[in-house]
Design a protein around this nucleic acid. Structure first.
Lengths: 343, 343
DNA sequence: ATGAAAGCGCTAACAT
DNA sequence: ATGTTAGCGCTTTCAT
């Protein structure tokens, strides 16, 4: 916890600018923030002084005065997970034009780190925080106590009266599974995270049941490539292999794919796959993954809108629909298979 | 650029804590920051008041007073690029324990955005900024003018007397290419970014030359999966195909792999690949990529050390070596091929 | 061991 | 149109 060695000789403040331009500090503020009217000539002099002196406003002082740092916090489990990386970028893309910067922190999905970060973000006078990690009642209590605006991002179910943005996971899973059913596969497995309450699990189960099919074996693993690999190895080792599987994230699917290749299986010939998320990686796996694309950009924008109170929707819960992206892993062999993707 | 609706009724400040604990504001500071000695009983009372009132220190006020926000800025071209995502996490991992938070911004490798972000970071009183995006002399001038500490991250060559952290790319490329030569491949191509000054290009060329080989055809594309796909399609369309290719990033390799699969080529049978970066994705492509792993964690830590002045090395330039990770794409078929990776 | 007070750089209400 | 000034919450020197 050492301090950084100082680098600059002396900071130029707004006072220096004022002196140089021969005006008062207030006029500098007026010129820069456009609050009150300033004579054009004066404004020009001020701007010139700013440029010459290389003046940079002190955001901390501004934040102290205003009670807002024009900063939005985002708590994700793991920012190097492609899905969350994309989500964070979407938030940044929406926040930037609104005049906010984005502070992203990783929770590793642990309660301790979530709480720590919440505290630290509150202390930084963030204007709001987006929670894309798991939360429970304690966290919510902390949130309320901190007195900062917050919204749940990438959550399907809403906690109490919380602002929430997320996808309808169950509906997405239904579309995915239905596509497999429509292909004529009869024994459809599920690979997902170890919580049977996952809406995607329910979606898979309900479509399988409605189609009068026997549910295929299920596999639960953490949402990682390695998790998918482990699940995939179990699946390919089965005496009676399913002919299709719905996998609830692209990362899991990529891992499972490796297990299938190693077993010498042909996908989709021996085993068809539809997965979930629509991350860039899913387009470049072999075979490319038919998947449910999450509208990451829209969700990021909606979350920022919720926080800034500019949401077009009057609802507390903005729920998005996924989109089935047809590629090769389901057996469709799309017509554009040899088309070059956009650079 | 609307403002956020206020959420909290009133902020509890250090003054409230002081009053509640029956002490002066200074004692609260002493207790919280451990500056001066405080009677144990008093300290306990203060801490109790903090807890009861739910007090959170105002970081903006602290930053204003101290001239430091305990914040490190990182400018990357694209935080959703797996390599940079990992690098950012490495920086965060090193900065956290040192008491810093990390503000990551995307430049899209454009000069305008880089300069804008530099300005904005300076204004936020960051203690230093790590530049992992392309820079030129103008940017450096701006950096010096801003008077903030900075270091180049993921740069191979040092600008003037700048602090720099990066990998020896040319050496890495040599190891990669040499591995291909050792395998006995005779016609070795290069796929990389469109700048022949790339040290990886030089590394490839020098090893090919030293081995008395004719250089295979070269392909230049942006550092994206799509870029790799385009290059790969050109490569597979060649009348006289090379028997191996060194690809200067995993993302390019993943794209090229897709082109090869679509052409029905066997990798490594028809065409062997060694790539560069060692991103998680490279382990799960099919076939898995033999690659030069960049020591991302060490580089992140070194960069933070440079910035905080706690670098163990007296040099301005901390240069790391990559490590050859043998997998399947080169033709080695490692012994552990069926071993499960760690979860 | 504790308190009083100055001042970090900025904004905005108020005065001119 | 421009200037004066109080005060945002904090740290820290200097008294006590």
């Amino acid at each position: 916890m050492t301090s950084l060695p100082a680098a600059s000789p002396r900071k130029v403040t707004r006072k220096d600018v004022a002196r140089y331009a021969g005006v008062s500090d207030a006029v500098v503020s007026y010129t820069l923030n456009g609050g009150s009217s300033v004579a054009p000539a004066t404004a020009a002099r001020v701007r010139e002084a700013v440029r010459l002196l290389g003046y940079t406003p002190n955001a901390s002082a501004r934040a102290l005065k205003m009670g807002s740092a024009r900063l939005i916090g985002v708590i994700v489990p793991d920012s190097s997970n492609p899905f969350f990386a994309e989500l964070c970028q979407a938030v940044e893309a929406a926040a930037g034009p609104a005049g906010y910067e984005v502070l992203i922190v990783n929770s590793d999905d642990t309660k301790t780190r979530t709480l720590q970060h919440l505290q630290s973000l509150a202390s930084r006078q963030v204007d709001g925080v987006l929670i894309a990690t798991a939360v429970d009642e304690t966290d919510v209590a902390a949130l309320r106590a901190a007195g900062i605006r917050w919204a749940l991002l990438n959550h399907d179910t809403s906690l109490e009266d919380a602002l929430t943005v997320g996808m309808d996971l169950e509906a997405g899973a239904r579309v995915a599974t239905q596509h497999l059913v429509d292909h004529g596969y009869r024994r459809i497995s599920f690979i997902g995270q170890a919580q049977p309450t996952d809406p995607r699990f329910r979606g898979w189960r309900s479509v399988v049941a409605q189609s009068g099919l026997e549910p295929g074996p299920t596999f639960f693993s953490p949402f990682t490539r390695a998790g998918g690999y482990v699940a995939g190895r179990e699946l390919v080792a089965l005496k009676e292999r399913p002919d299709a599987v719905f996998i609830s994230s692209d990362m899991l699917a990529v891992g499972a794919l490796r297990a299938m290749h190693e077993a010498g299986l042909d996908v989709p010939g021996d085993l068809a796959i539809v997965s979930f998320d629509g991350s860039p990686e899913s387009e470049y796996s072999w075979p490319s993954l038919t998947t449910i694309r999450q509208p990451v950009l829209s969700m990021g924008a909606a979350a920022v809108a919720q926080l800034t109170g500019t949401s077009p929707s009057p609802h507390d819960h903005r729920r998005f629909e996924g989109e089935l992206v047809i590629r090769r892993s389901c057996g469709c062999s799309p017509a554009d298979e040899t088309a070059a993707p956009a650079l």
